[in-house]
Each structure stands twice: as C-alpha cells, then as structure tokens.
Design a protein around this nucleic acid. Structure first.
Lengths: 119, 119
DNA sequence: AAGTATGGTTTATCCAGATAGACCTAAGGG
DNA sequence: CCCTTAGGTCTATCTGGATAAACCATACTT
C-alpha cells in the first residue's frame, strides 16, 4: 500500500487536484501559484513525479487523479494508528479526545459510525 | 505544540526510552545497537538533539524523557486529523473503519471512550 | 516575421533527516 | 604507567524532499 504514501507537499498538491479535477494543466499551474506559491516548473515537476508513481494522470493537458482521496485517507489513518498506537483504535481515540469535549450530537454521529462497522 | 513533533527515527528512539526509562546512557547505546542497528555515535547524536529540544534529558549518564508518550500521541492524533481529514474525527473514523469489521465488544469500548468526552 | 501563450522536460540547488567516523577526557584495573 | 571502558562531542557524508531556473517546441496572434 506504499502506493498511497504522499509527502506533505504532494498531499497539498493532490488535494487541489481532487478538489478541481478534471483540470487543465495550465490552470493547475495557476492554481498552485495561487494556493501554494509555486512556480510553474515546480508544479510540473511534482505533477510528473506523481504521474510516474501512478497517482495522477496527465493526458492531453487534462490532469486527473488515479487514486481516490478516500484511499489515501484510509492509508493515512491506518498508518498513524499502527505507527503510534500499536494498531489500537481505542488508544488513538483516547489520545485524540483527551481534554477535548464533544457535544451529544457529535457523540451520536461517532457511535453510529462505529456501529456500522460491527460485523 | 511543535515541541512534540518527532520524526520517524526519533520516534522509534524515544519509544525505546519510554519503555526503559530511566536508563543509563551506555545501556541505551547497546539497546539501540540491538533494536535499531545504530552505532554509538548515532545514538548520542540523536540523543543530544532531542535533549536540546527539551524532549529528553541526560543527566549524569541517566536518560529520561521530559515529554510523555501520551503527549506525543495526542499531538500525532490531532495532527493527522487536521492535516488529512479537515479536522473531522468522523471523517477519520469512517476512513479507518472502512472495510474493517469490529466486534460488539470493541464497539462497546469505543463508545465508552466517546461518551467520556461528552461535556 | 515577430511576439506571446501553452504545455512541458531536464537539470540543479538547498536544506534537513539519518547515520556514522574520528576524536577526546576521565576513571579504574593490572 | 599503560590499557580499557564509560561517556560524550564535533564534523562529515548520504539521501531525499521541496523548489525552481533554464530551456524547448508548437500554435496562435498581430
């Protein structure tokens, strides 16, 4: 699943694409200049790298994503739980919610998500 | 909270200390050679850096942690949710639990943790 | 014909994380 | 006295992520 590993800059960049795909490459250059402060060549360099890795696609100046945001998110969530929490979701939740208060409504939403996962 | 940011190698290293503190520095060198394959100088270099950053402490050859594992975990969990999930815990949970099944008992444990956080 | 915008590649720089080699001092043992 | 061990610093190398400069070809505009 190393396919879904995105570094910080790559993630921000890919996010822009997810939000705007399909997007013309020149427009993407402008967007990145705007949102990330990148020069044209930077955008093309990163774009090419991600295309080579099979994460993005650039065909006839139209850029699209080959992997879904959800897949990367899934990878991210699993990675952090594994790496920092012994693979334990309860440990993760405990750490995240420590000193953090949520409303009844938010709690309901979370519980619903959990119940959906019960086999 | 940048204080709690640990890079991969630093995290593994600090984990060893959390598991063994207080620990004599020479023993730590041996442990790291064993578990991480590090040379003595590598251990001391990383140790010094983390001491400078106020994360560890090395006094009279006794190494201890100044920040708790829980604090780093809290930072990690918050960071990933912010960076990859718009700060939304439900989004995180959904991604994590996607295609993953949990038992009734695990669900109960999770719900309990959630209820504790309701203000 | 000259200028300009589009779409892109190749190569390079810079910096930081990861790792280690060389070297140093003080204390204790034979 | 020499040697070893403990405890540690300073400096260096290697690698990869982040960013960009320079350069190029094609097509459209004036």
């Amino acid at each position: 699943m190393e396919k879904f590993k995105l570094y910080d800059a790559e993630y921000k960049f890919t996010s822009i694409i997810w939000d705007n795909e399909p997007i013309n490459s020149t427009k993407l250059v402008r967007l990145c200049a705007d949102k990330l402060g990148w020069k044209k060549s930077t955008t093309y360099t990163v774009l090419k790298k991600l295309c080579d890795r099979g994460i993005l696609q650039n065909q006839d100046a139209v850029v699209t994503a080959l992997v879904k945001r959800e897949d990367v998110q899934k990878y991210e969530s699993n990675t952090v739980v594994e790496k920092s929490f012994d693979g334990s979701l309860p440990k993760f939740l405990t750490a995240f919610l420590d000193e953090r208060k949520i409303t009844e409504k938010e709690a309901e939403e979370l519980k619903k998500i959990i119940e959906e996962a019960v086999k």
